[in-house]
Design a protein around this nucleic acid. Structure first.
Lengths: 239, 239
DNA sequence: TAAATAGTGTCTTTAAGACATTATCGC
DNA sequence: GCGATAATGTCTTAAAGACACTATTTA
């Protein structure tokens, strides 16, 4: 066992031995939600699969580090990235006090095939034991993704720029793990106010051609779907 | 201007100069949502109001540090605390690279009066300029609180153990900044599945006595309120 | 024209919005 | 009894659930 890493700053305060960015990147593959993992080269946990994280340096913002580490280790760039949370238990890393800031990343299914690297996609519902506390991190990521799916345009990160309703439905089903009734799915999507018909259609396939939709805004946004909390009072003026 | 703090660990990686825990503690006071602030004693930003944060040490978990700093600086202990997010931009602190892990804390209105310290409560909708990026942190905290109010039992942290519907309504109104229609408010609360009637009532006041309610579970939980996403398909067996 | 797929319509059920009404206290 | 406050009831409106039906393509 090595001596734990330590760091002390110029003012004598205890400082973490390092700070890592930890991208948790999801993509729907073959109808199931997958997460991107790499095999660890070094101790601790050498040989185990882990999230493709890496140390931050103090000259870029954390989300930039997350993107960079992701691209360095996997050749993939995420379409969407948001902060998940920070895992800071001093005991989580045997090397010493090394908190990790986790980021939820999403990749368009189309981008997916191109990458050839040491990274591999694993279905989230059947993971081998992972390094550190990465299984808990992935679980938190899945929760966040599922929780936002119908209330935000987070699916921007999972769908191509233009997509059909059945295509979106299959992606949503991969994420949530349930099957949606097609006509109600369509109604739910349209009512969210987040997507609109582009006017063009997809042909050259058996069956009725499908209309192509796109997101009204690709920047993070919440659904306009009525939030369904109790009515606010119409303030009546005293007469 | 001082020399920026630096830290380097034993393996030569760059390390943050320190890591701070940043409690963002809310309470409803006089019908408005307030946040707990302290006046900074030291540079930078000496004399300005700020969140009661402080440096973490590597021998406790971050949420413990947040609670401890809160109590040390304000004499108050939060009923509820959850991680908000980490602010890690290297430029956010003039002293150097010092990320902060922010925590959302909530305090039962009853606990509130007891504290006498340098800390003061400020209404969140009328804040003076604050130290660092603390105004943005508070804004994120308000968003989180409002976002979870009707979908979780987060109000556990804002209400006494037993409470009446009108009492809950006034707290919810302080948080959300809107007025609710009393009977629909009641229906919404009951339908959430998070609270139940205790059977006892409050008397000794003019007016019809109010029933006392309590949370079914005081640990973090989500409402059972139907989530209102499109119907899942009942998988029909092929015959 | 058949198989395959996408899209529309609609009846039922559930929940929310907007009140009017009734109940129970202290004085 | 009266003012104050809490609780119930109910009619209307909106959205979701379930499913039958129609439309448009390729082979």
């Amino acid at each position: 066992m090595h001596e734990p890493l330590r760091a002390v700053n110029g003012a004598g305060f205890a400082a973490p031995a390092g700070l890592t960015a930890l991208p948790v990147v999801f993509a729907p593959v073959a109808g199931r939600l997958h997460v991107l993992l790499v095999r660890r080269e070094e101790e601790p946990h050498a040989g185990m699969w882990s999230l493709p994280g890496g140390f931050m340096s103090g000259d870029e913002r954390p989300e930039e580090t997350a993107q960079r580490k992701l691209t360095e280790k996997t050749g993939v760039g995420a379409v969407y990235m948001e902060q998940l949370q920070t895992y800071g238990d001093p005991k989580r890393d045997p090397r010493g006090w090394i908190p990790s800031v986790a980021y939820l990343g999403l990749i368009d299914a189309a981008v997916l095939r191109e990458q050839e690297s040491a990274a591999r996609w694993f279905p989230v519902d059947a993971l081998a034991p992972l390094a550190f506390d990465h299984d808990a991190v992935i679980s938190d990521g899945v929760d966040r993704l599922r929780g936002k799916l119908w209330w935000s345009n987070i699916a921007v990160g999972l769908l191509p720029e233009k997509f059909t309703m059945p295509q979106a439905r299959r992606v949503f089903e991969a994420i949530s793990g349930v099957a949606y009734e097609p006509s109600n799915f369509r109604r739910g999507m349209e009512q969210s106010g987040l997507v609109h018909d582009t006017g063009s259609i997809v042909k050259n396939r058996p069956g009725r051609p499908a209309a192509l939709y796109e997101f009204v805004d690709r920047r993070p946004a919440w659904s306009t779907r009525r939030s369904r909390v109790p009515a606010t009072v119409r303030l009546r003026q005293p007469r």
